[in-house]
Simulated assay, not measured.
Amino acid sequence: MIMNGTYLGFDFGEVRIGVAVGERLVALAHPLETLATPNNDERFARIATLLHDWQPEGLVVGLPTHADGTPHEMTRLARRFAQRLHGRFGLPVFLVDERHTSLVAEEMLREAGLRGRRQKPALDQIAAQLILQTYFDGGGEALDVKGGSEERE
């Protein structure tokens, strides 16, 4: 069951993690920030601060796959990241198919006049926003970190 309240969305990457925030009641997601460190201790410390500040009901992590939906190395790493979030913070964590979110985010930024290097600071946040919005919109299947389907209302 989807609970109303604040949710944080994550576009996981080995170097950068995009973060978005949204309210389930109004079903709108917004870019928040990019965590630009590969150091896990720094990442999770910043995530802990975001959780304290935003008090989310749940977390949503984008699950990257090949275009045909088959998993690859980043799929495994994103699942591991989601499991770590759940283990450290005890919140429900959902995985959402993120195929093409980076491409859509690039196009959105290009349309806004940001190209090339100027896109980098916002790209991961916009991808996280799209992941979280997909979750709110019920597009695709949201999976919990244990791999079971989530019930939709």
Rank of each mutant, 00 (worst) to 15 (best):
F89G: 03
R88S: 12
D144I: 00
R117Y: 04
E106S: 13
L25F: 11
G13P: 10
L32K: 02
D137H: 13
V61Q: 01
E14H: 07
T34Y: 07
G148Y: 12
L91N: 07
S149I: 06
E150F: 07
S149L: 12
P121W: 08
I17W: 08
T37P: 10
E106G: 07
Q133I: 13
G62W: 01
T101K: 10
M3P: 04
F81A: 09
E151H: 03
M3I: 08
A128R: 14
L50T: 02
L59T: 00
R16A: 05
S102P: 10
H72A: 12
V26N: 12
H100C: 08
H52D: 14
N39E: 13
L130V: 12
A82K: 10
T65D: 03
I126C: 02
L51R: 07
D124G: 02
G140D: 11
T49D: 13
L95W: 05
L8K: 00
E106A: 12
E98K: 10
D11H: 09
L32Y: 11
T75A: 08
R152D: 04
L28S: 04
A112E: 02
G138I: 11
A27G: 01
L8S: 09
E141P: 06
Y135P: 09
G69P: 08
W54T: 01
E107D: 12
L132S: 09
L130G: 13
Q129N: 13
L143C: 01
A142T: 12
D11R: 00
A36R: 13
V145T: 15
T34I: 03
R115Q: 10
G140K: 00
L91V: 08
D53Y: 07
Q129K: 15
D11C: 02
G58K: 02
L8H: 12
T34S: 10
L109I: 09
F10C: 00
G147M: 02
L130M: 11
G9M: 02
M1S: 03
V61A: 01
E153V: 08
D11W: 07
V145R: 12
L143A: 01
G22H: 03
F94L: 08
S149R: 13
L132Y: 01
G22I: 03
D41E: 14
G116S: 03
A78F: 13
L103E: 11
G5V: 03
L35M: 05
A20S: 14
E106H: 09
F94V: 06
P71H: 02
V104R: 15
K146H: 09
D97E: 12
R84C: 13
P121I: 03
R84V: 15
D53F: 05
F10V: 00
A78Y: 12
N4R: 06
D53R: 11
F94M: 03
G90K: 00
A82Q: 10
A127S: 15
L103C: 12
S102I: 10
V60H: 02
A127M: 10
D124R: 03
Q83V: 04
E151P: 01
Q55P: 00
A127F: 07
P38I: 07
